[in-house]
Design a protein around this nucleic acid. Sequence first.
DNA 1: AATCCATGTTAGGAAAGCTTACATGAGTGG
DNA 2: CCACTCATGTAAGCTTTCCTAACATGGATT
Lengths: 124, 124
Amino acid sequence: MSREIRRTMPLLSMNIVMQLTELSARQIRYYEEHHLIEPHRTEGNRRMFSLNDVDTLLEIKDYLDQGMNMAKIKKLFAKKNEPVSTDERDLSDSELRNIMREEVRQAQRMQKSSIRRGDLSRFY
Amino acid sequence: MSREIRRTMPLLSMNIVMQLTELSARQIRYYEEHHLIEPHRTEGNRRMFSLNDVDTLLEIKDYLDQGMNMAKIKKLFAKKNEPVSTDERDLSDSELRNIMREEVRQAQRMQKSSIRRGDLSRFY
DNA sequence: AATCCATGTTAGGAAAGCTTACATGAGTGG
DNA sequence: CCACTCATGTAAGCTTTCCTAACATGGATT
Protein backbone atom coordinates (compact mmCIF):
# COMPACT_ATOMS: atom_id res chain seq x y z
CA MET A 1 0.00 0.00 0.00
CA SER A 2 2.64 2.54 0.96
CA ARG A 3 4.65 0.59 -1.60
CA GLU A 4 2.05 1.70 -4.11
CA ILE A 5 2.83 5.28 -3.25
CA ARG A 6 6.47 4.81 -3.89
CA ARG A 7 5.93 3.32 -7.28
CA THR A 8 3.65 6.16 -8.21
CA MET A 9 5.92 8.95 -7.02
CA PRO A 10 6.65 11.16 -10.01
CA LEU A 11 10.41 11.34 -9.80
CA LEU A 12 11.71 11.02 -13.33
CA SER A 13 12.00 13.48 -16.17
CA MET A 14 11.57 12.78 -19.87
CA ASN A 15 15.26 12.53 -20.45
CA ILE A 16 15.89 9.75 -17.99
CA VAL A 17 12.79 7.80 -18.94
CA MET A 18 13.93 7.80 -22.54
CA GLN A 19 17.22 6.32 -21.42
CA LEU A 20 15.65 3.78 -19.11
CA THR A 21 13.20 2.57 -21.72
CA GLU A 22 15.08 3.27 -24.94
CA LEU A 23 11.95 4.87 -26.31
CA SER A 24 11.86 8.20 -28.12
CA ALA A 25 10.07 11.18 -26.61
CA ARG A 26 7.66 10.94 -29.51
CA GLN A 27 6.79 7.39 -28.65
CA ILE A 28 6.33 8.11 -24.99
CA ARG A 29 4.04 11.04 -25.74
CA TYR A 30 2.12 8.97 -28.23
CA TYR A 31 1.45 6.28 -25.66
CA GLU A 32 0.31 8.94 -23.26
CA GLU A 33 -2.02 10.26 -25.95
CA HIS A 34 -3.56 6.82 -25.94
CA HIS A 35 -3.92 6.94 -22.17
CA LEU A 36 -1.61 4.04 -21.51
CA ILE A 37 0.28 6.24 -19.07
CA GLU A 38 -0.65 9.50 -17.43
CA PRO A 39 2.47 11.15 -16.09
CA HIS A 40 2.21 13.99 -13.63
CA ARG A 41 3.06 17.50 -14.70
CA THR A 42 5.19 20.09 -13.00
CA GLU A 43 3.83 23.57 -12.58
CA GLY A 44 5.60 24.38 -15.81
CA ASN A 45 3.83 21.54 -17.61
CA ARG A 46 6.73 19.16 -17.78
CA ARG A 47 6.02 15.46 -17.56
CA MET A 48 7.23 13.66 -14.46
CA PHE A 49 7.15 9.89 -14.55
CA SER A 50 6.91 7.32 -11.82
CA LEU A 51 8.60 3.94 -11.73
CA ASN A 52 5.18 2.55 -12.48
CA ASP A 53 5.11 4.55 -15.67
CA VAL A 54 8.50 3.23 -16.70
CA ASP A 55 7.29 -0.27 -16.01
CA THR A 56 4.24 0.27 -18.16
CA LEU A 57 6.34 1.70 -20.95
CA LEU A 58 8.60 -1.32 -20.92
CA GLU A 59 5.53 -3.50 -21.07
CA ILE A 60 4.18 -1.57 -24.05
CA LYS A 61 7.52 -1.91 -25.74
CA ASP A 62 7.44 -5.65 -25.25
CA TYR A 63 3.98 -5.92 -26.73
CA LEU A 64 4.85 -3.82 -29.73
CA ASP A 65 7.97 -5.88 -30.29
CA GLN A 66 5.70 -8.87 -30.31
CA GLY A 67 3.79 -7.32 -33.20
CA MET A 68 0.79 -6.22 -31.17
CA ASN A 69 -0.83 -2.93 -32.19
CA MET A 70 -1.99 -0.11 -29.97
CA ALA A 71 -5.61 -1.16 -30.09
CA LYS A 72 -4.80 -4.58 -28.68
CA ILE A 73 -2.44 -3.18 -26.11
CA LYS A 74 -5.06 -0.75 -24.98
CA LYS A 75 -7.52 -3.57 -24.49
CA LEU A 76 -4.95 -5.57 -22.60
CA PHE A 77 -4.38 -2.71 -20.20
CA ALA A 78 -8.07 -2.04 -19.95
CA LYS A 79 -8.57 -5.62 -18.85
CA LYS A 80 -5.74 -5.42 -16.38
CA ASN A 81 -7.16 -2.31 -14.77
CA GLU A 82 -10.70 -3.58 -14.86
CA PRO A 83 -12.45 -3.35 -11.53
CA VAL A 84 -12.59 -6.69 -9.77
CA SER A 85 -15.14 -9.04 -11.31
CA THR A 86 -18.67 -8.42 -10.14
CA ASP A 87 -18.89 -11.45 -7.87
CA GLU A 88 -15.89 -10.53 -5.75
CA ARG A 89 -16.49 -6.82 -5.75
CA ASP A 90 -18.23 -5.27 -2.77
CA LEU A 91 -17.45 -1.56 -3.18
CA SER A 92 -19.98 0.89 -4.49
CA ASP A 93 -18.95 3.14 -7.32
CA SER A 94 -18.77 6.08 -4.98
CA GLU A 95 -16.57 4.17 -2.58
CA LEU A 96 -14.31 3.32 -5.44
CA ARG A 97 -14.20 6.91 -6.53
CA ASN A 98 -13.24 7.94 -3.01
CA ILE A 99 -10.39 5.49 -2.95
CA MET A 100 -9.07 6.64 -6.28
CA ARG A 101 -9.36 10.26 -5.29
CA GLU A 102 -7.39 9.51 -2.17
CA GLU A 103 -4.71 7.76 -4.17
CA VAL A 104 -4.36 10.72 -6.45
CA ARG A 105 -4.09 13.09 -3.52
CA GLN A 106 -1.48 10.95 -1.92
CA ALA A 107 0.58 10.86 -5.07
CA GLN A 108 0.34 14.62 -5.38
CA ARG A 109 1.38 15.08 -1.81
CA MET A 110 4.35 12.86 -2.41
CA GLN A 111 5.22 14.97 -5.39
CA LYS A 112 5.25 18.21 -3.46
CA SER A 113 6.42 17.40 0.00
CA SER A 114 9.74 16.27 1.26
CA ILE A 115 10.59 12.93 2.71
CA ARG A 116 11.92 12.24 6.11
CA ARG A 117 15.42 11.06 6.76
CA GLY A 118 15.53 7.31 6.36
CA ASP A 119 12.51 7.02 4.14
CA LEU A 120 14.79 6.83 1.15
CA SER A 121 15.99 3.40 2.07
CA ARG A 122 12.69 2.07 0.81
CA PHE A 123 13.77 2.82 -2.70
CA TYR A 124 16.56 0.35 -3.01
CA MET B 1 27.30 -4.63 -5.12
CA SER B 2 24.81 -4.36 -7.93
CA ARG B 3 22.85 -2.63 -5.22
CA GLU B 4 25.61 -0.07 -5.17
CA ILE B 5 25.01 0.58 -8.84
CA ARG B 6 21.38 1.19 -8.28
CA ARG B 7 21.98 3.68 -5.54
CA THR B 8 24.45 5.51 -7.70
CA MET B 9 22.34 5.64 -10.84
CA PRO B 10 21.88 9.28 -11.75
CA LEU B 11 18.13 9.40 -12.15
CA LEU B 12 16.96 12.60 -10.55
CA SER B 13 16.95 16.18 -11.74
CA MET B 14 17.52 19.30 -9.64
CA ASN B 15 13.86 20.00 -9.36
CA ILE B 16 12.92 16.72 -7.77
CA VAL B 17 15.93 16.63 -5.48
CA MET B 18 14.95 20.02 -4.15
CA GLN B 19 11.53 18.65 -3.37
CA LEU B 20 12.82 15.44 -1.84
CA THR B 21 15.30 17.21 0.40
CA GLU B 22 13.61 20.59 0.91
CA LEU B 23 16.91 22.25 0.10
CA SER B 24 17.30 25.18 -2.27
CA ALA B 25 19.22 24.81 -5.51
CA ARG B 26 21.73 27.22 -4.07
CA GLN B 27 22.31 25.01 -1.07
CA ILE B 28 22.67 21.88 -3.14
CA ARG B 29 25.16 23.54 -5.46
CA TYR B 30 27.05 24.91 -2.50
CA TYR B 31 27.44 21.47 -0.98
CA GLU B 32 28.65 20.21 -4.32
CA GLU B 33 31.18 23.04 -4.40
CA HIS B 34 32.47 21.62 -1.17
CA HIS B 35 32.66 18.16 -2.73
CA LEU B 36 30.16 16.59 -0.42
CA ILE B 37 28.29 15.30 -3.45
CA GLU B 38 29.38 14.98 -7.05
CA PRO B 39 26.29 14.58 -9.22
CA HIS B 40 26.64 13.40 -12.78
CA ARG B 41 26.06 15.78 -15.63
CA THR B 42 24.02 15.35 -18.77
CA GLU B 43 25.59 16.19 -22.09
CA GLY B 44 24.02 19.59 -21.66
CA ASN B 45 25.68 20.05 -18.27
CA ARG B 46 22.64 19.50 -16.16
CA ARG B 47 23.11 17.82 -12.80
CA MET B 48 21.65 14.36 -12.37
CA PHE B 49 21.49 13.00 -8.85
CA SER B 50 21.44 9.49 -7.52
CA LEU B 51 19.54 8.21 -4.53
CA ASN B 52 22.88 8.14 -2.80
CA ASP B 53 23.22 11.85 -3.41
CA VAL B 54 19.81 12.50 -1.95
CA ASP B 55 20.75 10.46 1.07
CA THR B 56 23.92 12.44 1.52
CA LEU B 57 22.04 15.72 1.19
CA LEU B 58 19.59 14.66 3.87
CA GLU B 59 22.52 13.78 6.07
CA ILE B 60 24.13 17.16 5.49
CA LYS B 61 20.86 18.84 6.31
CA ASP B 62 20.67 16.95 9.57
CA TYR B 63 24.17 17.96 10.55
CA LEU B 64 23.57 21.60 9.73
CA ASP B 65 20.35 21.55 11.71
CA GLN B 66 22.41 20.26 14.60
CA GLY B 67 24.57 23.37 14.36
CA MET B 68 27.52 21.73 12.68
CA ASN B 69 29.41 23.80 10.12
CA MET B 70 30.64 22.76 6.71
CA ALA B 71 34.19 22.21 7.86
CA LYS B 72 33.09 19.67 10.44
CA ILE B 73 30.71 18.00 8.06
CA LYS B 74 33.44 17.68 5.49
CA LYS B 75 35.69 16.00 8.00
CA LEU B 76 32.91 13.66 9.00
CA PHE B 77 32.40 12.58 5.42
CA ALA B 78 36.12 12.33 4.84
CA LYS B 79 36.34 9.94 7.75
CA LYS B 80 33.41 7.91 6.45
CA ASN B 81 34.98 7.53 3.02
CA GLU B 82 38.42 6.81 4.33
CA PRO B 83 40.03 3.78 2.70
CA VAL B 84 39.93 0.68 4.87
CA SER B 85 42.43 0.81 7.70
CA THR B 86 45.90 -0.25 6.69
CA ASP B 87 45.85 -3.59 8.47
CA GLU B 88 42.83 -4.92 6.60
CA ARG B 89 43.75 -3.51 3.22
CA ASP B 90 45.50 -5.76 0.76
CA LEU B 91 45.01 -3.94 -2.54
CA SER B 92 47.75 -1.98 -4.20
CA ASP B 93 47.04 1.58 -5.17
CA SER B 94 46.89 0.64 -8.80
CA GLU B 95 44.44 -2.14 -8.08
CA LEU B 96 42.33 0.30 -6.19
CA ARG B 97 42.45 2.74 -9.04
CA ASN B 98 41.33 0.03 -11.41
CA ILE B 99 38.39 -0.83 -9.24
CA MET B 100 37.33 2.78 -8.95
CA ARG B 101 37.70 3.32 -12.66
CA GLU B 102 35.50 0.32 -13.27
CA GLU B 103 32.89 1.61 -10.88
CA VAL B 104 32.78 4.93 -12.65
CA ARG B 105 32.43 3.22 -16.01
CA GLN B 106 29.64 1.12 -14.71
CA ALA B 107 27.78 4.09 -13.36
CA GLN B 108 28.18 5.87 -16.67
CA ARG B 109 26.95 2.86 -18.55
CA MET B 110 23.94 2.74 -16.29
CA GLN B 111 23.31 6.37 -17.04
CA LYS B 112 23.31 5.89 -20.78
CA SER B 113 21.95 2.47 -21.45
CA SER B 114 18.53 1.05 -20.99
CA ILE B 115 17.49 -1.53 -18.50
CA ARG B 116 15.93 -4.83 -19.29
CA ARG B 117 12.34 -5.58 -18.56
CA GLY B 118 12.04 -6.73 -14.99
CA ASP B 119 15.13 -5.00 -13.76
CA LEU B 120 12.98 -2.19 -12.50
CA SER B 121 11.55 -4.28 -9.72
CA ARG B 122 14.83 -3.84 -7.91
CA PHE B 123 13.93 -0.25 -7.26
CA TYR B 124 10.98 -0.76 -5.01
C1' DA C 1 -4.20 3.07 -55.16
C1' DA C 2 -6.01 4.97 -50.94
C1' DT C 3 -5.77 4.68 -45.81
C1' DC C 4 -4.17 3.93 -41.49
C1' DC C 5 -0.77 3.50 -37.94
C1' DA C 6 3.33 4.32 -35.41
C1' DT C 7 6.97 7.15 -35.56
C1' DG C 8 10.26 10.83 -37.29
C1' DT C 9 11.15 15.62 -37.81
C1' DT C 10 10.80 20.51 -37.49
C1' DA C 11 9.52 25.00 -35.74
C1' DG C 12 8.58 28.24 -32.25
C1' DG C 13 8.02 29.07 -27.56
C1' DA C 14 8.34 28.35 -22.48
C1' DA C 15 10.44 26.30 -18.43
C1' DA C 16 14.29 24.82 -15.87
C1' DG C 17 18.99 24.67 -15.16
C1' DC C 18 23.77 26.68 -15.46
C1' DT C 19 27.50 29.99 -13.99
C1' DT C 20 28.95 34.22 -12.12
C1' DA C 21 28.60 37.96 -9.27
C1' DC C 22 26.97 40.60 -5.74
C1' DA C 23 24.03 41.09 -1.33
C1' DT C 24 23.10 39.92 3.44
C1' DG C 25 22.38 38.56 8.18
C1' DA C 26 24.13 35.71 11.89
C1' DG C 27 28.18 34.53 14.29
C1' DT C 28 33.16 35.15 15.71
C1' DG C 29 37.61 36.99 16.95
C1' DG C 30 40.36 40.70 17.74
C1' DC D 1 32.42 47.64 17.99
C1' DC D 2 34.51 46.50 13.63
C1' DA D 3 36.02 43.50 10.32
C1' DC D 4 35.45 38.83 8.70
C1' DT D 5 33.70 34.54 7.54
C1' DC D 6 30.06 31.49 6.49
C1' DA D 7 25.87 29.84 4.51
C1' DT D 8 22.44 31.34 1.80
C1' DG D 9 19.57 34.56 -1.16
C1' DT D 10 18.99 36.81 -5.48
C1' DA D 11 19.54 38.54 -10.12
C1' DA D 12 21.23 38.52 -14.89
C1' DG D 13 22.23 36.39 -19.08
C1' DC D 14 22.65 32.22 -21.50
C1' DT D 15 21.90 27.20 -22.82
C1' DT D 16 19.44 23.05 -22.62
C1' DT D 17 15.38 20.54 -22.24
C1' DC D 18 10.74 20.04 -22.86
C1' DC D 19 6.27 21.40 -24.75
C1' DT D 20 2.63 21.48 -28.51
C1' DA D 21 1.29 21.47 -33.13
C1' DA D 22 1.91 20.32 -37.64
C1' DC D 23 3.45 17.94 -41.42
C1' DA D 24 6.26 13.84 -43.43
C1' DT D 25 6.88 8.89 -44.17
C1' DG D 26 7.27 3.97 -44.79
C1' DG D 27 5.07 -0.34 -43.94
C1' DA D 28 0.56 -2.78 -43.54
C1' DT D 29 -4.23 -3.22 -44.68
C1' DT D 30 -7.94 -2.86 -47.50
